[in-house]
Structure formats: C-alpha cells, structure tokens
Design a binder for these strands. Structure first.
Lengths: 196, 196
DNA sequence: AATATAAATGAATAATCATTTACTTATGAA
DNA sequence: TTCATAAGTAAATGATTATTCATTTATATT
C-alpha cells in the first residue's frame, strides 16, 4: 500500500498555524489551507476528520509542546525563586521561538473550541505547580493560597509581557519588544510579593 | 423622514455579542445575526458598512465602556494602594457584570482585527496609568519602571483571575469562581511586590 | 510481476456566506 | 395632506464554504 507523506502532513500543520493567525479563525478555511499547503482539500480529510478536528488536534499538539518546554529541567523540589525563574525563562523562550503557536493557542483558549480541548495539558500544569507550591509552603518560603491565586500572581505578569511582545505594541499603541531586563524587573517584583 | 429605531439597533449589538461569544468569530455570520436580532440582513448594512465595521465598532464601544468603568472615581493623585485597589474592584465588577463584553473584547484583541482597532482606548489607559505611576514614584511608594512592566505586575494577576472565572474552570479543568477573598489575597501579594 | 490497499487527488455537492438590489414603510417638514 | 427622505425589508446575487465522490497513484506484501 501507499505510504503517508509525513512531510506533507507537517506542511499542512505549519500552514494551518500561519493562516489561522494571519487570517483569524473566521478568515481561515479548508480550501485556503489546501491551496497554501499545496494539497487537495480532500487530503485534509485523510489527516483530520473535519475542520474542528484539525483545529483541536493542532491545538493539543501545541499545548503539549508548550507544557513540555515549560517544565524542561524543572523539578518540584527546587526552591521557590529558582523554580519560578526557570519556568519564566522556559516559557519566554518557547513563546519567542514559537510565535505562531503561542498566538494560535492563546486565541484557541478563548474561543468555544476551548470546551472541547483535552484537559491533560492543564492537568499536567496543575499537578506540577501543586507539588511545587506545597513544597514552598512546607519550607516556609511562602504562605498557603489557592492554586489559582498562586498561578495568577506568579505567572500572569510574564504572560502579559509576552502578550505585549506578540502584539508588537503595548499601552497607547507604543511599540514594545520583550527584553530580559524587563523580565528580570517584573520577576523581582513578583518574587518579592510571593516570598513570605 | 422615517426615524431610526434605537431599540432595534441595541438588540443587534446585544445579539452580535451573544453570537460572537457563543459561536466564535468563525461560527458567526451576518445572516445568523439578522435572524437572531429579528431584522433583515440588509438592515445590518444600514447600521454598519460591513461585517468588519460591525465587529470593530462594537469592539470600540465595549472598550470605551470598560475604560470608563475602570477609572470610575479614580484620580492620579491617589496613593498607590488605594488607586490600585479601586481599579481592581472597578475592573472586576465590570467584568463580572459584563461577561459577554469581556469575553468578546479579549478575543478581539488577539485576532487580526486588533490592528484596526482605534487606539484611543489604550491611549486613555496609558495616560492615566502613566500619571498615577509617576506620582507613586515621586512619593517614594515604588521604584521607577517601564509602564509595560508596571502594568503587567499590577494588573495581569487580576485579569488572570477573571479569565479563570470566565472560563468557569481553571487549572486541571477544576471549577473556579472568582471571590473577593481571592482578589484580596492576590492584591496583598501584588502590592507587597510593588511597594518600595 | 501481480495484487491489495491506503494515500492522494480534481471536480463536484449542497449549504451558507457577505453583500446588493428593487421595493415598501414610516415620519418630519412643507 | 403631500412630499421628501431615510429606515427597513424580502429576495436575489455570485462567491465561498465544508465535505464527499469517483478515480488515480504509489508502495508493501505476495
């Protein structure tokens, strides 16, 4: 039997990301994707059940890569500051090197597709963070708080800086580019707030 | 001459928000909107030049209402903690009372439409925050930092809590509902980090 | 070399899309 | 009461949509 062309599949994924980000979810279509990837529309239905399946599968793949990158070199026994900074740099690097993936995934998580996304991605996050936080409390590095609160004060500032960076502009439409200096400035404030 | 039915226009806006959020930007269409609002598709083209104009105009209106709500009762001479907490509560109340608007606006800001959004909304933000921050530095309440950094450490945690609330679930798919208690817990950490 | 089978396709499907056209309706001004 | 004008509409426009069908192509196994 004929063998599936993995390269072709990869092009489809890449072009799908490009088009979804460039045209938005509404501007995107299967025919445009087929044309951009240089395949027949029917081929897309060999790789994916339908359009929703395509978007969700690509979304889940991106999510998994992001989680993996975030926890590269991380273990729950790290002290608060070290572990947090590792995740900050991991995450920032991923976003800066995977512009399209980030842009796409952030959108996806706000659309109705989010309800159909597999939950193993956030589950992994939750589990790693839970253990890390528990440890930090045990060691007297911080006080007990809900995971949602911890997450929000510990990571949201970084994600927001990345969001500014991705948009290319920030407050008042001013150009903005994320720098390590800004990351460090934000991190100092965050860790100061979290540390007991 | 015949007079425009303001009530009809309002229904269109409301239904547009509902459909855009419920169906996503891709599921949304002018015909669906017309049907949901009980008007002819052609009527939409009296109110708006085209679909893009409709989405942008509604987006700008939402943005303006959000800014106005955020700065209700605010003035730049407030001390850091008071001014920040006022904005937190203002913003949280707006989001909780205007679920659809928030959901829609957050999406809009990530789609390609964002480049065509009028910038007077973020400009107002930028201006108010700039003065507030400058004042806080002058009074020795905090150290000098880029507006983007300040913004990210001071507000991103709240927005993230709101995002959890809107999604209805947070880490690991666990149900989540924003409480004043959580807001206060997060705020304490944030203000501790920012204060000199 | 022949066969079986899944990959891949170009062209078609019916549905839906954004938008326009030709027309009717309501209302303030005359 | 008539008239001018903008609001509002039903129905149609051609383009584009997601998906499928009938067919061809490539390869692993026999």
């Amino acid at each position: 039997m004929r063998i599936r062309d993995e390269k072709k599949e990869e092009i489809v994924r890449q072009k799908a990301l490009e088009l979804l980000v460039k045209l938005g979810f509404d501007g995107f279509s299967m025919q445009k994707l087929a044309k951009a990837a240089g395949v027949s529309p029917a081929t897309l239905y060999i790789y994916y059940k339908d359009k929703e399946d395509l978007i969700l599968k690509i979304g889940e793949e991106v999510g998994e890569r992001m989680v993996k990158a975030t926890f590269e070199g991380f273990h729950q026994e790290m002290d608060l500051k070290t572990g947090l900074w590792l995740q900050w740099t991991n995450r920032a690097n991923f976003h800066l090197n995977h512009y399209l993936e980030t842009q796409f995934y952030e959108q996806l998580k706000l659309t109705p597709y989010k309800d159909k996304l597999a939950e193993n991605i956030t589950a992994k996050f939750s589990q790693e963070m839970g253990g890390f936080m528990k440890n930090a409390v045990k060691n007297g590095e911080t006080v007990r708080m809900k995971p949602e609160v911890f997450w929000s004060v510990a990571f949201a500032p970084l994600y927001n800086l990345i969001k500014f960076h991705i948009a290319g502009k920030s407050m008042g439409g001013a150009p903005y580019q994320l720098s390590e200096q800004d990351m460090k400035a934000a991190f100092d404030i965050v860790i100061k707030g979290i540390k007991k």
